[in-house]
Design a protein around this nucleic acid. Structure first.
Lengths: 136, 136
DNA sequence: TAATTAACTTACCTTAGGGTAATTAAAGGA
DNA sequence: TCCTTTAATTACCCTAAGGTAAGTTAATTA
């Protein structure tokens, strides 16, 4: 996540530092409601490895998007939460998720449209009926 | 741009196909007002190479985000424009640019804040006074 | 005849993001 | 004594995105 330092003069490139990575939006989205522990976060995002999660959290922390709270205990307990700047990203991510959701449905419906369009629609709506499941 | 086919079931990953690339938002943003020729697009986005522009336009076309119109002439003339689906992405990109712009200013101001905060602010506002310049 | 033009294509290289798997710390429990 | 737990770190590897530079096309123009 070192190359993300460059081209900071452009709003687009700047924003891309925080949302362009494969797991970045997923992580931030999970944190939108409050603090989460490392493993909770990890479990919420299947296929996300510990290494990548650590990397991303460290980057977010350095950039002031996420804050970290370590409890001195054994085994360790660490909580992550969004800073004010991080919170500002949530509506942005929300908009992206909405677009993705809408056009994902569109795509799936196009493929099956010759068969059972309404059935497909219902399946999709059940599958994605909560925004909870939208990121990850 | 081949790996972007995978993980299509997640709205976030789906959207990332179209906005996660270094130049994707810049290209789409330039096209927001109407058709542009290949070289016009290229000139509007400094440091974007022809190869990468071609790759991205081809991808967008395959995905139905951008449409292409070739005029049979020598030298060739080709125009690109957003499809309806592509247009849907503009408000999303707009939101991203707004966030990037705001937090870019914040960052720069933090660095120089001990010296001439109001001067810095003015410079920044002049530098970025048009949304035109926001993407690229 | 040679140069210019627009929109590519091709070949090559570099890098960084991400994946996999093993290892670490210290305390408490079986 | 060994295992478990949590939050990392470390050492790899692989791939794809992107950068660089040169070549291609065919008609027009100097």
């Amino acid at each position: 996540m070192a190359s993300k330092e460059t081209l900071a003069g452009c709003p687009v490139q700047h924003a891309l530092q925080y949302i362009g990575g494969k797991w970045q939006m997923g992580i931030l989205w999970q944190l939108r409601k409050g603090a989460l522990r490392f493993n909770t976060l990890k479990d919420a995002l299947p296929n996300l490895s510990e290494k990548v999660l650590t990397e991303n959290l460290k980057f977010f922390e350095e950039k002031g998007i996420v804050s970290k709270q370590s409890f001195l205990s054994v085994p360790p307990k660490v909580e992550y939460r969004l800073t004010a700047d991080g919170q500002d990203l949530i509506p942005v991510i929300e908009k992206i998720i909405h677009w993705g959701y809408a056009h994902l449905q569109e795509e799936k419906v196009k493929k099956d449209t010759l068969f059972t369009p309404s059935v497909v629609m219902n399946e999709l709506q059940q599958e994605y009926n909560t925004v909870e499941k939208a990121a990850g």
